[in-house]
Design a protein around this nucleic acid. Structure first.
Length: 530
DNA sequence: GTAGGGTTAG
């Protein structure tokens, strides 16, 4: 029995007893023969939920209810957990209602499970309401973690950190810290692997890949996820050689790579243009490691071939795939068509993307850029009016830079920042210096058909340039500048920042939406390959 | 019986 994630399980299982052919369920029924015993049902539901058979777990829950057995408090956490796993809000609400009817909704296990369920279904305010309703004396580490994770998984890091501070405060008030006066938390081995892996990931995503490696080396116990996090970290920093070296080391150490490990390996290859290496792993992962390439692996391979300019090969790969191409696959091809200025394949990819993701404005912008680059202004206009008709707004680019513990944000063409006049003046100064070292404005990222001067103005105010100028003006000479940008850095900004690093003799690290660029002495770690 | 780490396109 396979259901799509969005379908509501509890409402479609009314005939489960007649139609269920599921072997797991049948086996479990045979194992727990007493159908009239609620504890038998609890065990069945728990076993299925723990084993990841969420649909079956909910079927069992539903069957049990139809026998008019009265659920106990332990019936609900597993049933609700299954709703979480399926992101099935409808069934989750039904389970919530029933827990309420039987008076178990105040149980801390039930409320923690409900917080998780509402969060996973994107209903954060409902989750928070439940969290706030848990009396302090019974609120435990799992309730806190469920709520924290809810914020994190819904991209609300700010709320997560605020809540974490609240947690620390409550801990110290309740004497949690006095028992651990050294603030030492005792972890078991499994917990330490989870924390270690998170630390690796955190350092990698903050641009400190060497600190990540240090943490990795210090971990006594590692598992496949720890290795994969480190491999992926090298990949996003364009250090493909180290990513692959670590991958070989991992195999040698007897750790079996999994599906995601291969995504990370192929992604590392694509950031460095290692076409041969990429083909090798795509072709051998199936028979050597028993992991058949899935849509994510093809996505990386299309990206790899596309960036390397092998657009036809990339397109042929998509056409020959056993799995259905998704938006990542077509998005990779479209991105490659922008880099290598291929209008025809770009149109094919865009057409697919408009079907798959009709509300994503990014693809319209990309296609429009491809047209602009080819001087096809009528097509540019057509694409832009299509966007307008569908009320799709271009995502505004912004950049963040941290200075003495405070984060400064810049929008495209920002005129809000208190120092914006000085910043623009300084950018003018820099521009003169850049032209002295041979810089010519790159126009390919401008989608409007306007005169030369206006084009240059449009480019000059991209948020990353503002952030870089601001950071240079306000930081100690020689210190490293770190920028975070929400979109990909454009070709012109990449060139400008590269040259700025030479002119002002600064290291500049830019993390764009997916990866890192290290600018130093007029060069970038990506070797201008991205 | 509840929670917690790694991946791909723009």
């Amino acid at each position: 029995m396979k259901l799509s994630k969005s379908s509501s399980v509890l409402s479609v299982v009314s005939n489960v007893d007649k139609h269920s052919t599921n072997t797991n369920l049948t086996t479990l029924f045979n194992k727990y023969v007493d159908k009239n015993n609620v504890f038998s049902w609890n065990s069945v539901i728990a076993d299925l939920a723990r084993g990841g058979d969420s649909v079956e777990a909910l079927c069992a829950f539903s069957s049990m209810r139809k026998l008019s057995l009265t659920p106990t408090r332990s019936t609900f956490p597993c049933a609700i957990k299954s709703c979480s796993a399926l992101h099935d809000l409808h069934s989750g609400k039904q389970a919530h209602q029933q827990a309420f009817i039987f008076g178990f909704h105040r149980d801390v296990f039930v409320s923690s499970a409900l917080i998780d369920m509402y969060s996973k279904c994107g209903e954060l305010s409902d989750a928070r309401k439940l969290f706030d309703e848990i009396p302090q004396r019974i609120r435990n580490i799992v309730s806190w973690t469920s709520m924290l994770t809810g914020y994190v998984q819904n991209d609300n890091a700010r709320e997560a950190l605020l809540l974490f501070k609240e947690f620390l405060l409550e801990e110290s008030e309740c004497g949690g810290a006095s028992e651990n006066s050294d603030n030492v938390i005792k972890m078991d081995l499994e917990e330490s692997v989870i924390v270690g892996t998170s630390i690796i990931d955190m350092y990698c995503k903050c641009g400190q890949v060497d600190l990540a490696r240090k943490a990795f080396n210090q971990m006594k116990e590692k598992n496949v996820r720890s290795w994969t996090a480190m491999i992926a970290g090298y990949g996003m920093h364009c250090r493909a050689r180290e990513a692959l070296d670590l991958f070989y080391k991992m195999i040698k150490a007897g750790v079996r790579p999994n599906y995601i490990t291969f995504v990370s390996v192929l992604s590392a290859c694509s950031h460095a243009g290692l076409v041969q290496e990429g083909w090798h792993w795509l072709n051998t992962m199936g028979h050597e490691f028993n992991i058949e390439p899935g849509v994510e692996h093809y996505g990386c391979m299309v990206d790899l071939l596309g960036r390397a300019g092998k657009l036809k090969e990339a397109y042929d790969l998509i056409e020959g795939m056993k799995v259905k191409a998704d938006f990542v696959v077509w998005g990779s091809l479209l991105g490659a068509c922008r880099i290598h200025k291929n209008v025809d394949l770009g149109e094919i990819a865009a057409k697919k993307l408009f079907e798959l993701e009709p509300n994503n404005c990014g693809y319209h912008v990309l296609l429009s850029n491809i047209y602009a680059n080819a001087g096809r202004w009528e097509d540019v206009e057509r694409t832009r009016s299509l966007m307008k008709n569908r009320r799709l707004a271009k995502t505004p680019g912004f950049s963040l830079v941290e200075l003495r513990g405070k984060v400064h944000a810049f929008l495209v063409g920002d005129k809000e920042h208190p120092q914006h006049e000085k910043i623009y003046e300084y950018l003018e100064e820099l521009n003169v210096k850049l032209q002295e070292v041979g810089y010519v404005t790159d126009m390919t990222s401008v989608i409007h058909d306007v005169d030369q001067e206006e084009k240059e103005m449009t480019l000059r105010i991209h948020s990353e340039k503002l952030a870089v100028a601001f950071a240079i003006m306000n930081s100690v000479p020689g210190s490293t500048i770190r920028i975070i940008k929400n979109l990909r850095v454009c070709g012109d900004c990449h060139t400008v920042i590269r040259l700025i690093s030479k002119v002002v003799d600064r290291e500049i690290v830019v993390r764009d939406s997916k990866r890192f660029h290290y600018f130093k002495d007029g060069l970038c770690s990506c070797g201008d390959y991205w």
